[in-house]
Structure formats: C-alpha cells, structure tokens
C-alpha cells in the first residue's frame, strides 16, 4: 500500500485541502498572495490554508519526506534551505517569505527581497504542536486567511478528537516510534517532539521515556529498545527503511523475540515530515489511528 493510495482513498487532509482552496479560487486568482517558503512545515500549513507557494526550498525532495498533499508542478525549487538561490527567489517576486529561526543567518538578505515571516516550531522550550497551531494562526492572519485558519484548526481539533475516540476504543498499548538509520541504529521519537504532542492528544503513551534533543528525537542502538518494549508495546517504524535493515533484523533474536515483534505489534508506516507542523501532525495521527483501528477508517 503506497502512501498515496492510503490517503487518496480516504483521508481528512485531502478534503481539508479542497475545502481550504475553494474560497481562494472563488475569490479569483489575483487574491492569492505570492509566498515562498524555506521550510516544508510552513509551506505545508500555508497549503492547508489554500495558499500554494510559488517557490519552495528543496521542492524536489517534497515527495520523499512530506508526501501529501502532492506539490503542484508550478512550485519552483529554490535550492537548499540554508543556501536558497536568492536570484531565483527574487525573480519569483514573492510578497512574503516563510522561514524558521534555523535559517536566521539568511534573514537580512531575504528581507531585501520581501518581508520575512519567521516562525519557530522547534525550540528548546518544546510544545511543537502548540507552536504549529500558533504558526497556522499567524500565517492565516498574514495571508488574509484568518477564517480558513480558524476552520482548519477547528477541523484539526475535531480530527484529533475523533482519533482519540477511536484510539480509546482500540486501547493500544504504549508506542515506540522509530526511523531506522541502518541495521543497528535508529532515531527514536520522544519528549519535545511533534509525535509526542500528538500521542498526548490522542491518548497514547510513548514507551520512550528516555532523553531526547530539542528536536524531540534521540539516536540509539536498537538494543536500547529492549528495555522499553513492554508486553503490550507497539513499534512503529516510518519509511524510508534502508535496504539491508529488515533482512538483518530477521536474524537477530534480540529483535525477533522482542515482545512487540514476536507478537506482531510492529508496523511500517509511510513517511511523515518528522519536523513538520499541523498537517504533519494530522497525517501522523491518521496513519497511527488507522493502524491501531483499521475498521474505523472512513
């Protein structure tokens, strides 16, 4: 099952995007502000509010890391986020540039081209989901899409509440969320991460209670999962998975006898933008909930 199948068949996001784009189209093409984004997450949010960026950093890799919604072909790739092509960016004549403090060094040069809206999602203070909500509101305000933003966030709340209800019925155990680095190492997601905030909202315990960086992950040896994987824990791995990982793990008793693996509570889900915003949170919530409650899919 490819991610596209999963979401095109059903899915809140598609509907939400359609909803959000409708008024923009209705108001005429001249109404949509020209924006450029240096960050996938902010671009993702803007699209949810019905504004498709004219330029996006590393647009070429969107399909691998963000997946949904698909990026229109009209979006111009403006280069790597830390070194966007200023000439190309300027030629797109954006009215607003979306950035994060991560590319703070570029700010003054970006401001030569257009006003910059810098929104912090991942900070040492945590709460990325709350910050993503705030970012969506700020964006809505700035783009003249307050109504859409309110509507989007209300929908998001409703969707998360729906997920929480489904999760409450399915009663899954604690979850371990990982990305494989190679056949011996992984990133595990925990405190201060977007996934953590979503798990909190939908009422799932994160089995990883160890330390994390302020981006909300920690690099570990896979054996470190052993002490965290209790008898009712579910392990969720996200794509992409390097080619040699699964054959190697199949031969590791430590992995195969790990209760979640031995008892089939292991799943590989499509890629989600790890350091994303509200749309990524919803995508994660949907993928996770659909996994623990497959009958509840609508």
């Amino acid at each position: 099952m490819t991610p596209t199948d999963l979401l095109s068949r059903r899915g809140f996001l598609a509907g939400c995007a359609a909803l959000a784009t409708a008024p923009a189209l209705a108001a005429g093409p001249g109404d949509a502000p020209r924006i450029a984004s240096l960050d996938y997450g902010l671009a993702n949010t803007a699209m949810a509010l019905g504004v498709t960026p004219v330029g996006l950093a590393a647009a070429a890799h969107w399909k691998d890391w963000v997946v949904e919604p698909p990026l229109p072909r009209s979006v111009v790739d403006i280069g790597r986020d830390r070194e966007v092509n200023l000439e190309l960016l300027a030629s797109l004549r954006p009215e607003l540039i979306l950035a994060t403090p991560y590319v703070q060094a570029l700010r003054s040069r970006l401001e030569d081209i257009a006003p910059v809206l810098s929104l912090a999602i991942y900070t040492p203070d945590g709460n990325p989901l709350e910050r993503s909500y705030a970012a969506a509101r700020s964006l809505g305000e700035r783009l003249g899409r307050e109504r859409e933003a309110r509507q989007f966030l209300d929908e998001a709340d409703a969707f998360l509440a729906d997920c929480a209800a489904r999760v409450a019925r399915a009663k899954p155990g604690p979850a371990l969320l990982i990305n494989f680095m190679d056949s011996r190492h992984a990133r595990v997601y925990g405190a201060q991460g977007l996934y953590q905030d979503v798990l909190d909202r939908i009422g799932v315990t994160n089995a990883w209670d160890g330390p994390t960086t302020y981006w909300g992950f920690q690099t570990i040896g896979l054996e470190q999962l052993a002490t965290k994987a209790g008898p009712d824990t579910t392990i969720i791995a996200f794509e992409p998975i390097p080619g040699d990982v699964e054959p190697t793990l199949a031969q590791s008793p430590l992995w195969t006898q790990l209760p979640p693996i031995a008892e089939g509570r292991y799943a590989v889900l499509p890629s989600v933008l790890t350091f994303g915003t509200v749309p990524a949170a919803l995508r994660f919530a949907q993928l996770f909930t659909d996994h623990v409650d497959p009958e509840g899919r609508r």
Partner: peptide, 20 residues
C-alpha cells in the same frame, strides 16, 4: 537529511543486536 546515518557509520559504532 541523511547526515546522521552517514556519520554513524563513519564514526564506528560497536553496538550489536545479535551475534551475526
């Protein structure tokens, strides 16, 4: 985005999960 996995290998980790 592949930075970490490339560097883990380049920095030589001895972590193991089986006898292979």
């Amino acid at each position: 985005r592949y930075l970490a996995s490339l560097f883990i290998w380049g920095s030589g980790s001895l972590q193991q999960q089986d006898w292979s």
